[in-house]
Computed example of a mutant assay.
Amino acid sequence: MHGSLAVYPGTFDPFTPGHLDLLARARVMFDQIIVLLAVNADKQPTAEATTRAVQVREAMPSAWGNVEVDTWTGLTTAYCLRRGATVIVRGLRTAADFHHEYQLAAMNETLGIQTVWLPARPQLAATSSTAARAYRAAQSDRPSLNAEERPPATHKPEEGPGRV
């Protein structure tokens, strides 16, 4: 769409491969796209918005010159109206996502902002930011077993011909 500016909003905590895939597809549909990191007081992200914005920029190929990353506190539609964006891009992973997103899209449309939904690719649909955070937390809670912390081997296999 010539002259089009779209906004892809979210908390992106963390920015997952699914987010990156959706952004890759959306960026060829619009002249410019802004990844908008929402600052939402109801959510408690694991990192500040500016840190998450840096992580999003680092995840994107440098050749994506038509993608900008920004942060915003407030309604996404207010940001869109301020920047002149006419479209919000959202991803859908499940039918439950659709029901929630439909209500948001209806509200946004009354304010003059259209919503475009892109379905998650099947191989990426199972991973949500919530699942990624849970996995990351589980990994950090797991005790480290450095070489000097490992318990001594109690059984040593016999060595000999044909044994590895």
Rank of each mutant, 00 (worst) to 15 (best):
R163N: 13
A59N: 01
T94E: 06
S144L: 13
P143V: 13
A147V: 08
T11L: 12
E101L: 05
A41Y: 06
A106W: 09
V7K: 09
Q44L: 15
L75D: 01
V87H: 05
P157D: 00
A137G: 10
A153C: 01
S144A: 13
R82Q: 12
R150K: 11
D13M: 06
P161D: 11
R57G: 09
Q32P: 01
L22E: 03
P14D: 08
A41E: 15
A131F: 09
F12D: 05
M107N: 06
M107A: 15
T110V: 10
I88M: 07
N40R: 06
G112V: 09
Q139G: 10
V69H: 01
P45Y: 07
P61S: 08
T127A: 07
E48A: 15
A125E: 04
Q32T: 13
R83S: 13
P9L: 10
W64L: 01
G3K: 09
L37H: 14
N66G: 02
P45L: 08
P45T: 08
K156R: 06
Q114V: 05
L118M: 12
R121N: 00
Y79H: 11
L145W: 15
P161S: 06
E148K: 14
H2D: 09
M60Y: 01
A132C: 13
Y135K: 10
P157A: 02
R27V: 00
I34C: 11
E68C: 02
H155S: 01
A24D: 08
A78L: 05
R25T: 02
N108A: 07
G65H: 12
P143Y: 10
D141I: 07
L5W: 09
A126T: 12
I33E: 04
W72S: 02
D141R: 15
G10M: 08
A105H: 04
P151T: 03
R121G: 00
A26G: 03
A153D: 02
D42Q: 09
A6H: 11
T73S: 13
Q123V: 04
I113A: 00
A41Q: 15
D31Q: 11
R52V: 04
E149S: 10
V39N: 06
A24L: 03
A120Y: 02
S144M: 11
G74H: 03
L81T: 13
T51S: 08
V116P: 03
N108D: 12
D97I: 02
R83N: 08
A63T: 13
I113S: 00
T127W: 06
N66V: 02
G18W: 02
P119W: 15
I88S: 00
Y79K: 07
E68W: 05
A147D: 12
Q114N: 15
T130L: 09
V7T: 10
R82D: 12
A134N: 14
C80M: 07
L36T: 07
Y102P: 00
F15W: 02
N66W: 01
M29C: 12
I88E: 00
